[in-house]
Amino acid sequence: MTSDPRPIWRQGLWDNNPGLVQLLGLCPLLAVTNTTINGLGLGLATLIVLVCSNLAVSALRGALMPEIRIPAFVLIIATLVTVVDLTLQAWLHELSRTLGIFVPLIVTNCTILARAEAFASRQPPLAAVHDGLAQGAGFGLVLIALGAGRELIGQGTLFADANLLLGEWAGGMTLQLMPEGVGLLLALLPPGAFIGLGLLVALRQRLIRQPQTAPAPETSPSAA
């Protein structure tokens, strides 16, 4: 493992993005991303769990016997998710009600357990923290992009209900970009989530596709 964290960040944000490449954690990703703020809230919760679980797993990697490794990882993740869920209920109650069961379901997000097993259990704490931040940020960006697109197309706004996450002062952050009552309801429904994610995946594939240019034919000099 080199001291350069840039490959880790490139993996998490682009090359091995959990939402666009691995297609993990799709249940909460598709269920709550009907607004930008919902996506941001769930993304932050997932990022916190990823970073803390990676750090804990890396710190304990030499103390856990192989037979109990996976159960121990699940216990660590479940404990952290419970802390995050109770914190949301205590301090951001309305947002917690909006996200509902999908915060506790972070426990079942395959990304978190996969990073604990494939990376954090084999790397020092600093690298594990970088991996948690990169993977969490990559997943969170997909949540925000999908939520923003669905909110804009579905109800013509951005940052609606920002006060649920940021407090009462953020109540005026809503941007009304289309007239009220104008929007495509499909975008706010579950099929719209699948369509939106499919478009994001297709956009990434289009961006990484290399132009196929045929090499120029070689010409031999004409005979004298």
Rank of each mutant, 00 (worst) to 15 (best):
D4R: 02
D4P: 02
P5I: 00
R6Q: 05
G12C: 10
W14I: 05
D15R: 00
P18A: 15
P18E: 14
V21M: 06
Q22T: 12
L23W: 10
L30D: 02
T33I: 01
T36S: 11
N38I: 08
G41I: 05
A45Y: 00
S53R: 04
N54G: 14
L55M: 13
S58M: 05
S58Q: 03
L60N: 12
A63R: 15
P71E: 04
A72Y: 06
F73Y: 14
L75K: 03
I76G: 07
T82P: 10
V83S: 06
L88D: 03
E94G: 12
L95H: 00
L95A: 03
L95N: 01
S96Y: 06
S96N: 13
S96A: 15
T98D: 08
T98G: 01
L99I: 05
L99C: 00
G100V: 12
V103C: 07
L105W: 08
L105P: 01
I106D: 04
N109E: 12
C110M: 06
L113W: 10
A118K: 08
Q123H: 11
Q123T: 11
Q123N: 14
Q123S: 15
P124W: 15
L126Q: 14
L126R: 15
A127I: 07
H130V: 07
D131F: 00
D131Y: 04
A134M: 02
F139K: 04
G140T: 14
L141F: 05
L141E: 01
L143P: 00
I144H: 06
A145V: 04
A148P: 01
A148Y: 02
G149M: 03
G149H: 02
R150P: 05
E151S: 02
L152H: 12
I153P: 12
G156A: 03
G156L: 09
T157F: 00
L158P: 09
L158S: 10
A160W: 00
A162H: 05
N163K: 08
L165P: 00
L165H: 06
L166M: 10
L166K: 02
W169R: 13
A170T: 05
G171A: 08
L175I: 13
L177I: 08
G181Q: 06
L184S: 04
L186R: 13
L188W: 08
P191E: 01
F194V: 13
A202N: 09
Q205F: 02
R206M: 14
Q210K: 06
P211K: 01
P211C: 06
Q212P: 00
A214C: 07
A214Q: 13
S220M: 10
S222I: 14
